[in-house]
Nucleic acid binder design. Structure first.
Lengths: 196, 196
DNA sequence: ATAAAAAACTAATAAGTGTTAGTTTTGTAG
DNA sequence: CTACAAAACTAACACTTATTAGTTTTTTAT
């Protein structure tokens, strides 16, 4: 049978991970089988083990790639010198960009992290907790400096993160609304509301 | 072995469904086994089949219970006679209430509907589509009547629905923030923003 | 107390799981 | 051309899955 196409997508392992993300997204991690994954690569299941260690390693690779991407970015934004509102806006826009560019992997990291094994599960949750904490601190600082209304910072962060995460469901409407409108309108909604 | 406790939670079938929702939430539908479910009920797996037809029937029951609950409610709100902003506020508050009261089932309906079999999958997605369309129409009307800023209605609905859905992640903070604050701050955020 | 119905049990089945072992084919360097 | 390494293959294993059949226990109604 044919070999795994490597093309310009990086090493064979990376190609497998990418296909795994697509499959895990559409069928969920547990329901997706290694035989199915192999089929999308034009190969028998045992052949995959020449390139990867295990099924759960694939999930780990996906989750930590995305987790680290967000961690790195929020640190950069945190240390930049602008207003707090501008920082929050930058974070929202980063979420939207990353979501639309790495759709499958972000989706899987958001939905399937539950199936990570220890100690990876704990590590992943810590990354997320740190991310959220950074954001909460930012909102708190914004309130102190009168850039942001008095509001519960945990609720505000939950609202923002949940809203951007909802882009998972965007696909269907992609045709009708440009990414720029999507981005601008969502930023504006989350910062300034929709009441006329 | 002991019989399934029926208590005041309704019929035995309903007790099974409730436990199934709890299990499907924590382990996901595919990863949760009937043996595990039976164990939480103090019974052997085959005994469940005296009360239910199949595993997937449990998922159907959960998803359509929640789907119908939301459909009924949005129709009521739609036909009430108040401002559009008030209607949207009522919808947001209804989401929060339902989410916090039927946590397991809402969680499962949101996360595991993918594993519904046809024709139930199609039916469920239609219910959701109708729900969203009703909301989009509401936002469009609000814009026409100058209650709501000019903005893409699909983006606004996505933002609102995603934000309230994010209450799935609320558990941890339950202690620090009262439900009233949670509700008021989120409503205020989604309607009026957070910029000072 | 007794008959009928409900609901539990044990045993088993067929299908599907991730993964390993051992072997053969394919690609690459000298 | 030949040797070596990479990567495919087939066959198989140990396990888990949802579900069925058949039987026994428990509850309910007369």
């Amino acid at each position: 049978m044919a070999k795994i196409l490597t093309s310009k997508n990086g090493t064979k392992k990376e190609v497998i991970i990418q296909k795994a993300a697509l499959l895990f997204k559409s069928k969920s991690y547990t329901a997706a089988s290694m035989r199915e994954l192999a089929e999308t690569l034009g190969v028998e299941a045992p052949s995959l083990y020449n390139h990867i260690g295990s099924k759960s390693e694939l999930l780990q690779a996906i989750c930590f790639k995305i987790g680290n991407k967000f961690s790195v970015q929020i640190e950069m934004i945190e240390n930049s010198s602008t207003t707090i509102i501008a920082k929050i806006e930058a974070i929202i826009r980063f979420h939207i960009h990353t979501m639309l560019e790495n759709f499958d992997e972000v989706y899987v990291a958001n939905h399937e992290w539950k199936h990570l094994q220890e100690p990876f599960l704990t590590d992943f949750l810590n990354i997320r907790r740190n991310y959220e904490k950074t954001l909460v601190n930012l909102v708190e600082a914004g309130i102190e400096q009168n850039e942001i209304k008095k509001t519960n910072p945990y609720v505000a962060v939950l609202t923002i993160l949940s809203a951007v995460r909802g882009l998972e469901f965007w696909q269907r409407n992609k045709k009708n609304v440009s990414q720029q409108v999507l981005e601008d309108d969502m930023v504006n909604h989350l910062l300034n509301g929709i009441t006329a």
